[in-house]
Design a protein around this nucleic acid. Structure first.
Length: 686
DNA sequence: TCAATCCGTATC
DNA sequence: ATACGGATTGAC
């Protein structure tokens, strides 16, 4: 009974007791009671559980020991979810280990609850989370949120799926599919080898089928595979290819947009070892595939691989970390080549897997660059309204006689807001090279980044003083092309409405980069519009990214021998467009790599950004124990977030930089200082 | 001299 | 978030 302890509140005048005081008193009593609680009966064997608690504070990112009550003994297995009392709160945690004795000097608190006995955090993924957190200067709890999907109790209780018939494992079919490159690699997968390759896919290659064959070969050696692709459409394509190669039911899809139940069901199938082949988007990089033999990533330059949640890990880096740790095979593939992939080749960490030059030439479409000169536009007013030079217009018309034509047009958001109305050079700020825009129609243009007004703007290229907003947008382009070719259907694919594929009938398909549908039998013609605008994007990797988008679109064309043509509207002298014409992603990546090296940019150097209020960023930077050779750039205004400071170190000091950042974050978290957002190797700097 | 309060630190 | 320990303050 509580009668004797309750008399105090009744003696107080009700109005004099503040609610907060009462609540505090109640909590104190509860705390006192829990302290006196009789000691729990511990599990007879290994009575201590090491638990990673779900607290996003850097200085608490280590396992804490709890006593396992005898009642929970069976459920508290390594990798299982538990609830624990931590610093006066109930928090979630993962058991990483059961041990006999703790080295904690104080008394251990008992586990509060075992959520379930399902070991959702495998030792490999626990280790991976630790390495990824260290690499990105984040916490394990943040990484674990990305790695382990939320539990769905109903799904967890459902019986496991019946194992289907044995998968088809046709190594000769796999070797044949990979023959144009070098079938030794795929044969090595099949015999338990772990080659690491950077694979340049041939133009028009059926890459989903090649990934499926690679997974089949790996499965033949008794090992599982993890295939990461940029988006859901690609998951669907690889899904179909895997079904065709292995038969149904031998692989699962892991995508974030599948819904909680489906996502957890697929995760459990992997975690329980029922599914050995996984295809998915960036969330799948952490999938606990049993006996992992191969990690693969397709088109690793796609910005969808940059995780938007802390600590912002990149899918490629997660997979490479995993491959390094688990000694499995690696396939980094694409039509384009990122400088990061090139770096793997240059350092000898991975081998290059490409087809001979003659095979590339035979598979590639015929590529031409055509500039929309003023004379040309003056001769042909229709071309002006459609931003199409005569030759591009003719290529479309010719292509439409043989099949579908793809027109790639940059997305609105990727474009500078204003450009010279004579030579189309984007208008940039003299102070910081940011893009100019018109804040209000009546006011002079100003910089979108630093706000400097430019009332006296003159084009840096041609001296012209007229500005215009570029006519862009895929919807608008579709209308224009539709008027020019009234006899053929015009499809549009972008943003919310993305088409997966189109048939072989003549049609115009207008798409934004990354949203291009696959055409049955390939496009007769692919037109790349506004290449100068894409190249004008203010970004670290503008040229690399532009070439990637053009190669990805151009790879959907038929080979030149079957009439496939690509027309890029732009400056024929441009280096990036020339790499497209030569279909030379690796040569381009080599030059990019050299430039990054001399400019001290990733991957030759490692960068980190600190974003927050100016005073906080300054104090955080001052607290950093930076390795030798570190440089601080900035701070510069970073929009509503405050300021951004860039820290740059030689690549060899990357580990030291991450450790310094972790240490600094730990001290700041412990002192409850305002948060400073830390990003290691951000994909973009704005 | 002791209790009430503040502040920094650990959180198992 | 909360709880604890040690330092600091203030009333007797």
């Amino acid at each position: 009974m509580t009668g004797t302890g309750d008399d105090e509140p009744q003696l107080e005048l009700p109005g004099l007791v503040r609610a907060r005081d009462t609540a505090r008193a109640v909590r104190k009593q509860a705390a006192a009671r829990s302290k006196q609680a009789k000691p729990v009966d511990p599990a007879p064997e290994l009575p201590v559980a090491r638990v990673l608690v779900d607290v996003p504070l850097a200085h608490l990112d280590k396992p804490f020991d709890y006593l396992v009550p005898r009642k929970l003994d069976a459920d508290v297995v390594p990798g299982s979810r538990v609830k624990v009392r931590f610093a006066g709160q109930d928090v979630d945690g993962f058991v990483v280990e059961r041990i006999a004795e703790s080295d904690h000097p104080g008394r251990l608190t008992p586990l509060r609850r075992a959520v379930s006995a399902e070991p959702v955090l495998s030792p490999e993924v626990a280790r991976l989370s630790e390495l990824v957190a260290a690499r990105y200067a984040g916490t394990r709890s943040d990484v674990l949120r990305l790695a382990v999907p939320p539990r769905h109790a109903t799904v967890e209780k459902q019986p496991t799926a019946p194992t289907p018939d044995s998968p088809r494992l046709d190594i000769e079919a796999a070797a044949h599919a990979w023959q144009p490159y070098d079938d030794a690699t795929v044969r090595a997968f099949a015999t338990g080898g772990s080659p690491r390759v950077v694979w340049s896919a041939l133009p028009a290659a059926d890459w989903p089928a090649l990934l499926a064959h690679a997974a089949a070969a790996t499965l033949a050696s008794g090992r599982g595979s993890l295939l990461c692709v940029p988006d859901h459409r690609d998951v669907t394509r690889v899904d179909e290819a895997l079904t065709a190669v292995l038969g149904a039911g031998h692989h699962v899809l892991l995508t974030a947009d599948a819904g909680p139940a489906a996502r957890y069901r697929a995760f459990l199938a992997v975690s329980r070892g029922e599914a050995r082949v996984v295809v998915g988007t960036r969330a799948a990089a952490f999938a606990p595939v049993h006996d992992l033999g191969l990690v693969a990533i397709w088109d690793d330059g796609d910005d969808l691989y940059a995780e938007p949640r802390a600590p912002y890990p990149h899918t490629r880096e997660v997979l490479l970390t995993r491959a390094h740790e688990q000694s499995c095979a690696v396939l980094v593939g694409g039509f384009a080549r990122t400088v990061e992939a090139e770096y793997l080749v240059r350092t000898g960490w991975a081998a290059e897997l490409s087809a001979p030059r003659t095979t590339v030439r035979a598979a590639a479409p015929q590529v031409a660059v055509t500039g929309a000169t003023d004379q040309e536009l003056a001769r042909d007013p229709r071309a002006r309204s459609a931003r199409l030079p005569r030759s591009a217009f003719e290529a479309i018309r010719a292509g439409l006689e043989h099949g579908p034509v793809l027109i790639q047009t940059p997305r609105q958001g990727y474009l500078p807001s204003l450009a010279c109305d004579r030579c189309r050079t984007p208008a940039t700020c003299r102070a910081c090279r940011g893009p100019l825009h018109l804040p209000k129609p009546s006011e002079p243009p100003e910089c979108r980044w630093c706000g400097t007004p430019e009332p006296q703007w003159a084009c840096g290229e041609c001296g012209n003083r007229g500005l215009r907003a570029p006519v862009v947008g895929e919807r608008r382009t579709a209308e224009e092309i539709g008027r020019a070719f009234p006899a053929v259907p015009v499809h549009s694919s972008s943003g919310e409405r993305v088409l997966a594929r189109v048939d072989a009938k003549p049609a115009v398909v207008v798409a934004t980069p990354g949203a291009e549908p696959v055409a049955d039998g390939g496009y007769a013609c692919v037109v790349l519009l506004d290449t100068w605008l894409m190249l004008a994007r203010p970004d670290l990797r503008t040229a690399e990214e532009s070439l990637r988008r053009w190669l990805d679109a151009a790879a959907l064309a038929r080979p030149g021998g079957r009439g496939g043509r690509v027309v890029a509207v732009g400056d024929p002298a441009d280096q990036t467009l020339q790499a497209l014409v030569r279909w030379d992603p690796s040569g381009f990546a080599q030059r990019e790599m050299a430039e990054r090296q001399s400019a001290h940019l990733p991957p030759a150097s490692r960068l980190a950004t600190l974003v927050g209020a100016e005073a906080d960023v300054q104090s955080a930077a001052a607290a950093l124990e930076l390795p030798d050779g570190a440089e601080l750039l900035g701070p510069v205004p970073a929009g509503d977030d405050g300021v951004r400071l860039v820290v740059r170190v030689p690549r060899a000091s990357g580990g030291a930089l991450s450790r310094a950042l972790v240490e600094m974050q730990g001290v700041r978290d412990a002192k409850k200082l305002p948060a400073v957002r830390v990003q290691v190797d951000p994909v973009a700097l704005d």
